[in-house]
């Protein structure tokens, strides 16, 4: 899908519920309703529309559509897009290093809410990391980058995350999966691997059966009188 002009870079930011408006005739595509003209079922996201889909009113193609202004923002999508932008800027520093795999690009995969953060995987041409972003932007301001790794418990085990901070982006936590990325032949393989990593992170390893607690020993009530007479333990 090609979106025109300034929206080219925001294509991935569209959430499934984003309402889109034709830039020519102002017709609005409502994902909740679908599109009767093209026999599109209700609940279809704009980005999932088939390539042959065109504006039912003026017959322009999808590239002229823009998000309707004033919609409720998706804070996670915005934050993840900012993360991608921050690391896209860093790519220049790696072009002349053996870490750079030109077949790959910066892409965030599978971000979801997890505890008080958003967890997902970031693919770049020079690393693949599990990334945590704080839902409250100021929440990790007191963490010192490089000081103490933050330990988090996921279904797959305990993981130590390093704290990172960029002035123009904010704070994140990262746990390295791959670096270099040279073993990935193409971006699709990297993406499949990232998705499989997320599955693996949220799969518990053969959980151990907790042992049933031993039945409590029957306790004989202590006879106060016997105790005072020195007959504790053998009730006469």
């Amino acid at each position: 899908m090609i979106l025109s002009g300034a929206f080219g870079s925001t294509a991935q930011r569209l959430s499934a519920a984003t309402r889109m408006e034709c830039g020519v005739c102002w017709a609005v595509y409502e994902p909740a309703e679908g599109c009767a003209t093209w026999d599109i079922g209700a609940g279809t996201a704009f980005s999932d529309l088939p390539d042959y889909w065109r504006c039912p009113t003026c017959d322009n193609d999808k590239s002229v559509f823009l998000p309707v202004a004033g919609q409720e923002a998706d804070p996670m999508a915005d934050r993840v897009a900012a993360l991608e932008d921050a690391f896209r800027t860093a790519e220049a520093a790696f072009l002349d290093t053996p870490f750079h795999n030109a077949a790959l690009r910066v892409e965030a995969i599978g971000f979801r809410a997890w505890e008080d953060a958003w967890l997902g995987i970031l693919i770049t041409p020079w690393f693949m990391n599990v990334i945590l972003l704080p839902q409250d932007p100021a929440a990790w301001d007191d963490l010192m980058p490089g000081a103490v790794p933050q330990r988090h418990i996921l279904p797959a085990g305990r993981f130590d995350f390093e704290v990172g901070r960029l002035d123009h982006f904010g704070t994140w936590q990262a746990c390295s999966l791959f670096s270099t990325m040279e073993s990935f032949a193409d971006h699709n393989t990297a993406r499949q691997t990232a998705e499989a990593c997320l599955d693996a992170l949220f799969t518990a390893e053969a959980p151990k059966e907790p042992e049933p607690p031993a039945p409590p020993e029957p306790v004989e009530p202590i006879d106060r009188r016997a105790l005072l007479r020195g007959q504790f333990g053998s009730r006469a």
Binding site: M128, R151, R158, L177, C197, A200
Partner: peptide, 18 residues
């Protein structure tokens, strides 16, 4: 490739664990 991506993913996650 897909099966191998899964294998690589599982060993990467194991390696990354504390």
């Amino acid at each position: 490739g897909a099966a191998i991506a899964t294998h690589a993913a599982i060993s990467a996650v194991k390696r990354a664990r504390a």
